[in-house]
Design a protein around this nucleic acid. Sequence first.
DNA 1: GTGAACATGTAAATTGTTACATGATTAC
DNA 2: GTAATCATGTAACAATTTACATGTTCAC
Lengths: 174, 174
Amino acid sequence: MDVRTLCLGVLSFGETTGYGIRKAVGDWFGHFAQASLGAIYPALAKAVARGEVEVVGSADMALEKRTFRLTDKGRETLAASTAEASGDETVRSPFLSAMFFAHFLDMDDVNRVFDERLAGLRGEQRRLRSLPSGDMTEGQRFTIRYAMATTTAAIAFMEREGRAMVTAIERERT
Amino acid sequence: MDVRTLCLGVLSFGETTGYGIRKAVGDWFGHFAQASLGAIYPALAKAVARGEVEVVGSADMALEKRTFRLTDKGRETLAASTAEASGDETVRSPFLSAMFFAHFLDMDDVNRVFDERLAGLRGEQRRLRSLPSGDMTEGQRFTIRYAMATTTAAIAFMEREGRAMVTAIERERT
DNA sequence: GTGAACATGTAAATTGTTACATGATTAC
DNA sequence: GTAATCATGTAACAATTTACATGTTCAC
């Protein structure tokens, strides 16, 4: 899903600023989509030009706080883009890449990379748990629970098989 | 992990062609990294220029099958890149994006997107199961089992909570 | 008063995909 | 013979990140 659609999507829950969109993406979408400010502002400008988004109140003074609101046309675009959204899930994992080439790492690095990833997963789990699911739609809650299920499974897998894997790599090397 | 490192990584398991690298990436890395031919060939050319990779046998006739082999320097680069590999896992999921904005979809679309994703997950599970784990390193096996654990958890979650979610969305709408 | 968070925007650089262009080999 | 797969490489295009440049507001 591209940044423009993501912006429209965030605005469908209420008006906010470009900066606010980035925060929302980080907080609510972080586990399946991402967008940086350098992508959000141009996308927002384009959306305004297309009439999908409008600026609330004060017009166009540069470097001033601008609040954006979704228009009816934007709602249409969002509905269409959402229905068309397709394609497989893609994952990029520096951790799994490192593990794949673990035969080039010394055991300290293997352990470090492993521990870092486990800590990252636990942090993600905490973050997901702390999200205020009360004021969410069913669809939103579903994405959180889905992420929770996969994250929990990843943690369980690493706790269960991690140390065995490390010693197996060690053994393999001798 | 960038395409160049991925190429070096594949070549660390044995010499092959650019096309062969793409197949290997698709088969073994598909669940945590990806690379297209349009990225692989330039990356390979750069790696040859740096002396990280060498062409086996026949020199440089264009449009002829060229087999690449990792050099000692390439092995060094790969080891360094692998040890430095860091950063969080990033996921891009058109499916979860669609679910997040499910309030803009009609129920047919919700059901279709859901079924497509479940089918995709099952296909991925089959693919992972069919990989020949016999001739793999421990690190490689770990990445496969990790992917298996998360994929299985995703399938279980969807089977367990999917229909309830669909009806909840339906209820929410009335 | 000062550091963190809020806030906007542009531009360079990176990175990669898709499409184009070409042709060989293999299996049916 | 013909379709699929194998095979290489370039170039146009797309998308995004990072860095730069600037300034405000709020809490301590």
